[in-house]
């Protein structure tokens, strides 16, 4: 680097060498991104870490605690049961999203006339706010005025309206249905993009060799979609681990506090009990857990295939 500036003998008008000017220009180009990352990620992260070392009430002075919040966290039964519940939820909600998203992607990856309309339709729920969609489902599932109970009653499948949110399993089922409906379009678009990046020649060559549709699917498309799968999976798992809105709005953590997710517990500590320092410590731990989970997923699905 240092040699670069010495080899240029002719200084420019402003006294800066060409490479220096290039450097400054380059720096200016990345500056917006750097500022954004600093302001929106690095600084809040440092602040969260700093807060997590304090007893930080909403009102009044913060007092330094050292690592006490983290010690409390280890002994916090609700935190661990929330983490376990969130894991269960993630394990239950991820397969339906993926299977359905893959099937939908296959469907809309055809060149049929008007297929773009379906693509749009499947994607629409993604652009609705999660809070809004959760409230929508609360009313769809309502026992008194909900359409779903109405349909089930009219079709004679049930005799009394189902009260979805008084039973943990029913509540979980209802939430999973609502979330699959809400997010499947996003995974579908990711997979679709991956599918369209696969060169047609590969399929044509395989077809010439006599490969069936199923063989083309399992031996060409699926292996080549590995990295797309990895991305979609990591995003989906992170999303599920950060689940909050749907539980806050649809179950309020009930029945009997059986559906409290990790983020819900962070919310409760921070904004119901106003223990902001403890909430920060919980957030840091969740961040570490998510980091580890993402690394594992990316390792397992590492893409060594090239074409």
């Amino acid at each position: 680097m240092a040699t670069a500036s010495t080899t240029v003998t002719k200084p420019s008008r402003r006294g800066a060498t060409l490479s220096q000017r290039r450097m400054i220009a380059g720096f200016l180009f990345v500056l917006p991104a750097v500022i954004f990352t600093l302001a929106m990620f690095i600084f809040p992260l440092i602040m969260t870490g700093w807060m997590s070392l304090h007893d930080w009430p909403l009102l009044g002075q913060a007092t330094f605690l050292g690592l006490q919040n983290y010690v409390d966290l280890v002994n916090d039964g609700q935190f661990w049961s929330s983490l376990w519940f969130t894991t269960q939820y993630t394990l239950l909600v991820t397969p339906p999203i993926f299977i359905l998203a893959f099937m939908l992607a296959l469907l809309v990856n055809t060149a049929l006339r008007g297929i773009g309309v379906f693509r749009t339709i499947y994607f629409i729920p993604v652009v609705i706010g999660l809070g809004t969609s959760s409230l929508l489902w609360v009313w769809l599932l309502n026992d008194r005025v909900g359409i779903i109970n109405g349909l089930l009653l009219d079709s004679g499948l049930i005799e009394r309206p189902i009260i979805w949110f008084v039973d943990k399993n029913l509540a979980m089922f209802a939430i999973i249905v609502s979330i699959v409906w809400k997010t499947v379009g996003f995974s579908m678009i990711l997979l679709l993009a991956g599918m369209q990046a696969i060169p047609d020649e590969l399929y044509q060559a395989a077809e010439v060799d006599g490969a069936s549709y199923w063989q083309r699917l399992t031996h060409i498309m699926m292996p080549l979609l590995r990295s797309t799968f990895a991305l979609a999976l990591v995003l989906s798992v992170i999303g599920s681990y950060l689940a909050f809105d749907q539980f806050y709005i649809m179950t309020r953590g009930g029945p009997q506090n059986q559906t409290i997710t990790t983020v819900y517990w962070i919310f409760n500590n921070s904004f119901t009990y106003y223990k902001l320092g403890y909430g920060a410590a919980l957030s840091i731990v969740l961040l570490v857990i998510l980091g580890i989970l993402s690394i594992i997923q990316l390792r397992v699905l590492r893409d060594d295939t090239t074409y």
Binding site: N142, D143, P161, I163, W164, F165, V166, G254, P255
Partner: peptide
């Protein structure tokens, strides 16, 4: 009403 139980 039974729905009262789940009413948040």
């Amino acid at each position: 009403p039974a729905g009262a139980q789940a009413d948040t």
